[in-house]
Amino acid sequence: MGLLNGVEYRTVEVRFDNEICFLRINRPDAENRISSRLVEECARVVEFCEQHAKVLVLEGLPEVFCTGADFQEISSAPQGDGYERTHAEALYDLWLSIALGSFVSVAHVRGRVNAGGVGFVAACDVVLCEEKAVFSLSELLFGLMPACVMPFLIRKVGVAKANYLTLMTQPVTARQALDWQLADACEVNSANLLRKHLLRLRYLPKTGVARYKKYLGALDDTLVASREKAVEANREVFSDPENLAKISRYVRTGQFPWEEE
């Protein structure tokens, strides 16, 4: 999928335009689900951006931004080897680096966003979406919860709206996301919307952005303070045998927990 700093990437596409990095999640055969390799590759790119980019644009595919955890990987992971906690720590730390990094992080959202995909969106400084985009948190349908997503989502929309999205598990429209401040701007042509924002963000100096982001993080340390609670809650639900059975059945048959065999 391309090279950056001598490293080949398989789950993402990366390109630079001056000091703007475009990071595209690119797992079309897996609906852009979050695998361990995806987290690792995104983390490498974000680390590179700390020194070399003043804007990071995070994108997905035209019909799907990101649909959350890779259930195939979870169902095949050896039990008791600490996979759940290690993966959760890596994912949370990736979102922290996007939220607190020395660059402006911009989510360009098209298509479906679910579960952990909402975490990627909520971690970004600026969220731009097309009018066809839909956002959902489906975890509770499987007995899970958006544990790592919640601190980032609450920072965006508040406790009440984050709670509603979690409990209802239903998609909300881009316009609803805009009203709830999960999204900052929305248009039919989101590519043009992104272009207009980048034309302005190009003027910002890297040093100024870095100092501002450091100050902003110092004003509110909620994301850092919530890390351990989020990781532990995530480990608890993803190590529950009943939940893992639901995930395995879904991977095997495509049936949701409430559907009969």
Rank of each mutant, 00 (worst) to 15 (best):
E187C: 10
R24D: 00
A174M: 06
A183Y: 06
A185V: 03
S105H: 05
L219D: 02
E232M: 10
L178P: 11
D29M: 07
G101E: 09
C186G: 04
D81T: 09
D70L: 02
G217K: 02
S36H: 11
G119S: 07
A183S: 14
Y215P: 12
L201W: 03
V231Y: 00
V39Y: 01
K196E: 09
P146H: 06
Q79K: 15
N243R: 09
Q72V: 13
N26G: 02
V126Q: 05
L165G: 01
R200D: 14
V12I: 13
E130N: 09
E47R: 13
A99Q: 08
P146A: 04
L198A: 00
L38N: 03
R175N: 05
E260R: 08
G117D: 01
L198V: 04
A218Q: 14
C49I: 04
I25T: 12
D93L: 05
R155D: 15
R211D: 14
S36Y: 08
V109C: 13
E41T: 01
V134Q: 14
V231K: 00
G68R: 01
R24M: 00
S102D: 14
E19T: 08
L56T: 04
A162S: 15
E59F: 00
V231P: 07
E31H: 02
F256C: 01
L223H: 07
G80Y: 10
A183T: 07
R112K: 13
S190P: 15
R249T: 04
R27Q: 10
F256A: 04
L216M: 13
E13K: 15
T86R: 14
S76R: 10
C129S: 13
L23S: 03
V172A: 07
N26Q: 01
R10N: 05
P28A: 00
C129K: 02
A133I: 04
A77I: 03
R85E: 14
S102W: 10
P257G: 14
V106T: 06
E139W: 11
A88K: 00
E63P: 08
Y212C: 13
V45W: 08
Q72K: 15
E261P: 01
L178W: 05
L3P: 12
A107Q: 04
R110M: 12
R85C: 08
E130A: 09
D17P: 03
G254Y: 03
Q255K: 14
A107H: 01
D29Q: 11
F65L: 07
D125A: 12
E73Y: 09
T86K: 15
D29A: 11
L94K: 04
E40N: 13
G2L: 09
E131P: 15
D179G: 12
E89C: 15
P62Q: 00
L38W: 07
A218H: 07
L219N: 11
L128M: 13
W180V: 09
D221V: 05
R155T: 06
V109M: 07
S138C: 12
W258D: 10
S248K: 15
A191M: 14
R249A: 04
V113Q: 04
K246G: 11
L4N: 08
V104A: 09
R24V: 00
C148V: 12
G158S: 09
I20Y: 05
S105L: 05
A122Q: 06
V231D: 01
F238T: 10
E260C: 05
L193N: 11
C49P: 11
C186P: 13
E47K: 06
